[in-house]
Write a protein that binds this DNA or RNA. Structure first.
Length: 641
RNA sequence: GCCGAUGUAGCUCAGUUGGUUAGAGCAGCUGAUUUGUAAUCAGCAGGUCGGAGGUUCGAAUCCAUCCAUCGGCUCCA
C-alpha cells in the first residue's frame, strides 16, 4: 500500500502501482475525463504512469498552466506525426510548448513549407487526433536510442541524445510516430479537438547562426473548438491595438523609405506625447538630484575606442564619418555614457560631491539588423532617457533603491502594472567573461538584491544574464502579440570608470575609482511610447492626450460661440480645437470618436444662449450639459498627474 | 543577416486562366445643404500597380534580382 497526499492535505491509501488516472476515476468519472496529467511530488507525470512510492498528487486539467503545456507539447508530437505522414524524409529538431501553443523545428530537405501547406497539415492532424492514439512512454537505453535514430537518419535527435545521460532517456509513441521525449503527455490524441497552424519561420539548429536553419512551424490546439475561435478573436482584437497601426491612424509617427529604415519621423501629435513624457520625467529627476547635461550626436572615433564600444561593435555599426582632414573619423554616438564620462572628468571630484547624476535625453544610433526592426520598439535611431550616476561603492545600494523607486513611480503614473523585473546576475560557474574583481561584483549583486527587497519589488533572478561590465535590473513589458520588450533598465558598470580612468578624492586624501550606474526608466522614448500606445489602445491618459478636447458646432451659425469656448479653455490651459467643417454633428462625432478624442463639446443654439457646452465622452457617450466652469473642473480632475 | 509571406491612390481593399484608356469606399478639392450625439448629397481630382530588368505581339498578373513591410531565428553597447 502507498500513501497519497491530496492538495487539501487529506491522505488516502492505494495499492502500489496504481495510476493517477485510476485515482481520478475513483473520485469521479467526469474529473477523470477532464484530467490531462498529474503532478506527482511536484513533477508532472502522465496519468497512466504507475506510482510506486508515497507521494503527493495534484490532478492537472486544461485550467492549469501545466495542463496547457502538456496539452500543447502533445500537440507538437501530433503535428510531427502528421508532417511525417505527409512528407517523406523529414527530420525533427525540438518541439516544445510555448506560452500560446507550440512549435516544432523540422528539416524538410528540399521542400519549402509555407502557409499554403497549413491546411494539409491541420487536416492530417485532425484525422490522426480522431484515432485517439495513446501516448506510450518507454524508457530506452542510450545505445538503443542512438541506434533507432541512426537508422532513421535523424542527426538532430542524435545530437540531442548524445547530450543525455544513459538511464534518463525515454521515447514516446503515438500511432506510427515515435519521438525522443522527456514527456509527459496527455492520455491520447483524442483530447485535441481544435487545431490551427499559426506561422512558419526559420530557426537555427540550437539557436546557432552557424548551424543549419530549420523550418519552425508554430501551431495551437484546444480541447474545444469554441476556445480556438475565442483565441483567434482575441488575436484579432490585439492586432487592433498594434502600435504600428494606431501610430499611423492617430498620426503619431511615420516611416519613409526615403529617409531610411528604422528611422522614425515623429509627427506633431507624437511630439506632444513625447514632450509631455520628457517633462514629466525631467521634473521627477530634478526632485531627485539629477543634473541635466547635453552632448552632441557624434564623437571622435577615439572616444569609442577608449570606451571599448568600437572594438566590440564597430564593424557591425554605422561606419565612421570623415572630415576634409583625412585622418579624422567621427562616429554617430551609439551610447551617451562615454560623453558623460568626459563630463565627469571635466573637473576634479571630492567624495563629498558624490553621487553625481548626469541626465540627458540623448539620441543614439545603432545599426540593428534589418530583420530586427519593428515599429517604434526596435529602431536604428532612438532617444534614451539616459542618466549616469557616479558614486562611491558604499552608495551603490542607496542609489539603486532611489532609481527603482523612480522607475516604479513612472510605471505607476502611466498605468503599467503588468511588468516583469528581471535581475541579471553573473554566471557563478564562469567568471572569466566578466570585468572587475569578484569582490566588487559580489557587493554590487548583493546591493541589487537588497535594494529590490527593500523597495518591495517582485523580481525574477537570472544567472549568467549580466552584462560583461556589471549586473543589471531590467523592467520588461509585453507587447500586444506577447513579445517581451525591455523598457526601464538599471545597470552597474565597473568597466567604463576604469577605461576612462575616472577618479575622486576620498576622505583619506587618496584617489578612488567611482562606480557608474546607467539607468533609463523609459528605456527609449520610441519603444516606451510604442508599448504605451498598445497598452492603452491609443486612449492615452488625459494629461498625455495630444488633442483632449474638440468643439463641435452644430452648424456654421455657432462657430463664433465655439471660438469663444476654445479661447476660454485655452486660457485655462486646456488644449481645445474646433471642428468647423461643413458636416452634420453626427459625422463630426464619428470622426472625433475614431480619433479617440476624449472630450467632444457639442455647441448649438441652447449652449450659446446659456453659455454652456454639451459634453460627450469618448467611448461613453453623452454626459449632459455643463457650464464651462464645471467642464474645466471635470477636465482638471482627470488630467492631474 | 537568415527562413517564409506580403507590396495596387494619403488610408482600407477589388482586379477573373497575361488582352485596349487599372476599379471602389474613406480622406482631399469644388458646389449644394445649415445640420443636435458614430457617415447629407452631387461633381472633380488622385496610380509609370514597391524599384530597375527579363520573357511575350501584349505584364499589376509570369521569371530572376534589388528595396521595404510582416512573422520568426540570430543579435541587442
Amino acid at each position: 500500500m502507498l500513501k497519497i497526499t491530496f492538495p487539501d492535505q487529506t491522505v488516502k491509501e492505494f495499492n502500489e502501482g496504481i495510476t493517477s488516472l485510476e485515482i481520478a476515476k475513483g473520485i469521479s468519472e467526469g474529473l477523470a475525463r477532464r484530467c490531462l496529467a498529474a503532478k506527482i511530488n511536484e513533477e508532472v507525470w502522465e496519468l497512466t504512469r504507475p506510482i510506486h512510492s508515497d507521494s503527493t498528487l495534484r490532478l492537472i486539467t486544461w485550467d492549469d498552466p501545466e495542463g496547457k503545456s502538456v496539452f500543447w507539447h502533445s500537440s507538437a508530437h501530433l503535428m510531427a506525426e502528421a508532417i511525417e505522414a505527409l512528407y517523406s524524409g523529414v527530420k525533427f529538431g525540438i518541439g516544445p510548448p510555448v506560452e500560446w501553443g507550440f512549435y516544432y523545428d523540422v528539416d524538410l530537405g528540399e521542400k519549402t513549407f509555407s502557409s499554403d501547406d497549413f491546411k494539409n497539415v491541420e487536416d492530417k492532424m485532425k484525422e490522426l487526433a480522431g484515432k485517439n492514439s495513446a501516448f506510450i512512454r518507454k524508457p530506452v537505453a542510450k545505445k538503443d536510442a542512438l541506434e533507432y535514430f541512426t537508422e532513421k537518419g535523424d542527426e538532430y535527435k542524435l545530437d540531442l541524445i548524445n547530450d543525455l545521460e544513459d538511464g534518463t532517456i525515454t521515447f514516446y509513441t503515438q500511432g506510427n510516430f515515435t519521438d525522443l521525449c522527456r514527456g509527459p503527455h496527455i492520455p491520447n490524441t483524442g483530447f485535441i479537438k481544435a487545431v490551427k497552424l499559426l506561422n512558419v519561420a526559420g530557426a537555427y539548429w540550437r539557436g546557432d547562426e552557424k548551424r543549419k536553419q530549420l523550418t519552425r512551424i508554430y501551431g495551437i490546439t484546444f480541447p474545444k473548438q469554441g476556445e480556438l475561435e475565442e483565441f483567434l478573436k482575441r488575436l484579432e482584437e490585439a492586432k487592433k491595438r498594434d502600435h504600428r497601426k494606431l501610430g499611423k491612424e492617430l498620426e503619431i509617427f511615420h516611416y519613409s523609405e526615403k529617409v531610411g529604415m528604422g528611422l522614425p519621423l515623429w509627427l506633431p501629435k507624437g511630439v506632444i506625447i513625447r514632450e509631455r513624457l520628457e517633462n514629466f520625467l525631467k521634473t521627477e529627476q530634478r526632485k531627485r538630484g539629477y543634473t541635466p547635461v547635453m552632448t552632441p550626436h557624434i564623437g571622435k572615433k577615439e572616444l569609442y575606442v577608449t570606451s571599448g564600444h568600437y572594438e566590440k561593435y564597430g564593424k557591425e555599426s554605422f561606419q565612421p564619418i570623415f572630415t576634409p582632414n583625412y585622418e579624422e573619423e567621427y562616429l554617430l554616438k551609439p551610447m551617451n555614457c562615454p560623453h558623460h564620462c568626459e563630463i565627469f572628468k571635466s573637473k576634479p571630484h571630492s567624495y563629498r560631491d558624490l553621487p553625481v547624476r548626469l541626465s540627458e535625453f540623448g539620441t543614439v544610433y545603432r545599426y540593428e539588423q534589418s530583420g530586427e526592426l519593428n515599429g517604434l520598439t526596435r529602431t536604428r535611431g532612438f532617444t534614451q532617457d539616459d542618466a549616469h550616476i557616479f558614486c562611491r561603492e558604499d552608495q551603490v545600494k542607496a542609489e539603486f533603491i532611489s532609481v527603482i523607486d523612480l522607475v516604479m513611480h513612472v510605471f505607476e503614473k502611466l498605468g503599467f502594472s503588468d511588468y516583469t523585473a528581471q535581475v541579471s546576475l553573473s554566471d557563478p560557474k564562469d567568471r572569466s567573461k566578466y570585468i572587475g574583481s569578484q569582490e566588487l561584483w559580489q557587493k554590487a549583486e548583493q546591493g541589487i538584491i537588497d535594494a529590490t527587497k527593500e523597495t518591495g519589488l517582485k523580481t525574477v533572478t537570472v544567472y549568467g544574464e549580466a552584462a560583461f561590465y556589471g549586473p543589471k535590473l531590467d523592467f520588461m513589458v509585453k507587447d500586444v502579440i506577447g513579445r517581451n520588450w525591455q523598457l526601464g533598465t538599471i545597470q552597474v558598470d565597473y568597466n567604463l570608470p576604469n577605461r576612462f580612468e575616472l577618479e575622486y578624492t576620498g576622505a583619506d586624501n587618496v584617489k578612488h575609482r567611482p562606480v557608474m550606474i546607467h539607468r533609463a526608466p523609459f528605456g527609449s522614448m520610441e519603444r516606451f511610447i510604442g508599448i504605451l500606445i498598445e497598452h492603452c489602445s491609443g486612449n492615452f491618459p488625459l494629461w498625455l492626450t495630444p488633442e483632449p478636447v474638440v468643439i463641435l458646432p452644430v452648424s456654421e451659425k455657432y462657430i463664433e460661440y465655439g471660438k469663444k469656448v476654445a479661447l476660454q479653455l485655452n486660457e485655462n490651459e486646456i488644449p481645445a480645437f474646433m471642428d468647423d467643417k461643413d458636416d452634420k454633428v453626427g459625422k463630426k462625432i464619428r470622426d472625433s470618436e475614431l480619433k479617440k478624442i476624449p472630450f467632444m463639446l457639442v455647441v448649438g443654439e441652447k449652449e450659446e444662449k446659456d453659455g454652456t457646452v454639451a459634453v460627450r465622452r469618448h467611448g461613453k457617450g453623452d454626459l449632459g450639459v455643463f457650464t464651462l466652469g464645471n467642464f474645466v473642473a471635470l477636465f482638471r480632475e482627470e488630467a492631474v498627474l
